[in-house]
Design a protein around this nucleic acid. Structure first.
Lengths: 154, 154
DNA sequence: GCCTTGCTGCGAATCGCTTGCAATAGCGAT
DNA sequence: ATCGCTATTGCAAGCGATTCGCAGCAAGGC
């Protein structure tokens, strides 16, 4: 109800591959769609929709925020991108490369750790054991305090 | 930076005790403040600010949403209340009684499990072990899929 | 009871995101 | 190349949650 259905990640190598997939899925590939893709491939870290709309700080043509959201949503349905919500900030979008990265955020200093699925298996196992839930930290990250902040703040 | 500083929970028995604490902290206790407190003590589950502003469905006098937020914030700083963010919905506020409850939300059906601190210790231990983080699911809950949804959805 | 000033109430603003709609532009067919 | 259908865009307005500004009211110390 809250989260979009998850499909197997496609791990696209470059924007052109995604363009092919988009067309295969019956979509048109507009300038805005290409720009959003270019931005996602150019960004090293998850980016907010607004940064994409601003052309990633001038490197790319600016486009309408609305359009960015619509493209991101489409790409997300295709399994090409995913987004995380860190705290109360805007969602951050990134390409799904090989398996979804999961996130752990420090509420003290804001540090974000990216963990791969495997590293979190013990955690997931503990949750499964205790609650029967299959935990996921891809869309909503885990929150806590990093070692330094935990020591400092008690 | 994201989350309010956490203090030791005070576990107030009734509204009057909180009133005393409010005054001790140099606050005035207005009608709105009393009503917010009454609502929090009356509610069995975490409530949204708007429900409190609406007088909890007629049982209590209605008040200004702004005021509710301001009172909740004050009470939160005092360590009397805390709030959770479930998905993209409004924050849900509740009294801190004895140790903060932690939450696990099913992204499939929306079910929310309340777990006490102790039950989550194995999970916290696994996180500590793997990442050095001290995890907390009080303000931002853990997300995942409950047993039924996990089975159903794959 | 008086006076100070913290709180309230109301309005407007902000932030992240969605929706409505007419104009534009992909792209398959010609 | 060009045509035509309609998916997408751009712009404006809307929305839900929360915050801010400010004048007037009312807690509560004296």
């Amino acid at each position: 109800m809250t989260t979009a259905p998850r499909r197997e990640p496609l791990a696209f190598g470059d924007a052109d591959e995604v363009v092919v997939a988009l067309r295969a899925a019956g979509h048109r590939v507009s300038r805005a769609a290409r720009t959003v893709l270019a931005a996602l491939f150019a960004a090293e870290r998850p980016v907010a929709a607004e940064q994409i709309a601003d052309g990633l700080g001038g490197d790319l043509p600016a486009l309408e925020l609305t359009s960015v959201y619509r493209n991101l949503e489409r790409l997300e349905q295709l399994g090409v991108v995913s987004h995380v919500h860190v705290g109360h900030s805007p969602g951050l979008y990134s390409l799904v490369r090989d398996g979804d990265p999961e996130y752990i955020v420090c509420d003290g200093c804001g540090a974000v750790v990216t963990a791969d699925h495997a590293a979190l298996e013990p955690v997931r196992a503990a949750v499964r054991e205790a609650f029967g839930y299959e935990a996921s930290f891809t869309h909503f990250p885990m929150h806590g305090r990093c070692a330094a902040c935990a020591r400092r703040g008690g």
